[in-house]
Design a protein around this nucleic acid. Structure first.
Lengths: 229, 229
DNA sequence: ATTAATATATTTGTATACAACTTGAGTTTA
DNA sequence: TAAACTCAAGTTGTATACAAATATATTAAT
């Protein structure tokens, strides 16, 4: 469930926090919690077998990251997708990908290549999945996180991840059920191209490729907007 | 104390949070709390006349932003300035300023011009201040926040602010007492140049100017490193 | 019937007691 | 003497009762 590797040196409390945090975040960006859903602290406390206190720490973090709106006395609500905000974030992300080859790009490890190849395979079976849209979103997240391996500048990686999680919901939200197959093929092709470019250490072209990917997503947003969401 | 303007529609709890948060943050970046200082939750709770609960929310936020390290059973410690980390952040910031004129730059308002002129005046009296280094850092923060008015892309502004607060401490930390006057004059000159460029809506040059400012800061870091900190 | 006011229930925010953990001084032991 | 152990004091993490705020249902007035 997109669990980021953590140093083994962290406390049990921190592990528990990370577990709950990453679980809730993935539920939000995969639309297990639809926008507008109210997350009850008491229910979550029951589910994770803890008190409200550690739950509230997680919810506060999700609020800072723009995925949750906490309203005193009313509830904790999953934020709606705001078209202007999404476009702003995409605009920024399109500029940031350029920096991958400017700021300390890291060579593609054998591990990364392997992961990307596995994800390519995963692309082919997305349509056969019981929940294709959700599965596509899931693979999309994994692909993004894999690509982040190339970013050597740590603050840049942190920023890109945060921005990504703010837009990740658009895929399962806007994608039409009958287009998932097409999108999956497209993602497969993009990974192919990325693998080719990374084999040549051609980071500028890789940045360009990713930029095109984001531009298309952006365009998709604009057309979806006119058709009404 | 660098209080960002807030919508008037926020709850009393949120106002209290912002007050404590911004107060502690400014104490850290102005070195009222030196790196390594332990912040006792109980003491802070006493000072702000609240219980530990709201204090802990603030401390958690400061930890996420890299200004604090929370250690269970040990204490909450102001983070040390890490040279490699600072350099990474500066590298990134140097690229991000370029985006000011790419992503929806906003025209300089009369208000902004006025603020910058006031800050120029402030530069001239920094050396006469009882704590010149602290005063320089204070003015430097205000200048930065003023410049951020030009950034139309909201996520970009948020990112730049966060990165700024991660590096802001270097000024009062590394600056030599006898160099404050020189630095203040430099800042004064930079504001002059910025005002000139903004009057012509020359955002590319403004970006270049700010980039040079960051590059110099970066260089300063490198030399300080060799002389030992 | 509609609307405004009120009361009640529900939910998040805060205060506080206690648990888990760290630290350092003091003691013991090799 | 030095290293390992023990324990006590102090700090953050958690659970929980209560306060503050909100939403909903009820009632009364028009």
């Amino acid at each position: 469930m997109f669990m980021t590797e953590m140093p083994s040196n962290i406390s049990e409390a921190e592990q528990r926090f990370q577990w709950i945090y990453q679980t809730l975040r993935s539920r939000i960006i995969l639309l297990d919690y639809q926008p507008g859903t109210r997350l009850s602290e008491e229910q979550l406390a029951d589910e994770f077998k803890v008190s409200r206190t550690p739950i509230r720490r997680v919810l506060n973090r999700l609020e800072v990251e723009g995925l949750l709106e906490i309203r005193h006395g009313a509830g904790n609500f999953v934020t709606e997708l705001s078209m202007p905000e999404l476009l702003e974030v995409f605009e920024l992300r399109m500029e940031l990908v350029r920096l991958i080859d400017v700021l300390a790009p890291r060579a593609a490890s054998a591990n990364l290549i392997q992961r990307l190849q596995n994800l390519q395979m995963a692309c082919l079976s997305i349509t056969k999945h019981p929940k294709p849209k959700r599965r596509f979103a899931e693979v999309n997240v994994e692909v993004f996180l894999s690509f982040m391996d190339l970013v050597g500048n740590q603050p840049l990686r942190a920023v890109q991840e945060q921005l990504f999680y703010r837009t990740a919901r658009m895929w399962p939200y806007l994608l039409d059920e009958k287009n998932v197959g097409y999108e999956a093929e497209l993602l497969h092709a993009e990974i192919s191209e990325a693998l080719r470019l990374l084999a040549n250490n051609d980071y500028p072209s890789f940045g360009h490729l990713y930029r095109c990917h984001l531009a298309m997503a952006c365009q998709r947003l604009a057309t979806m907007q006119t058709t009404g969401v």
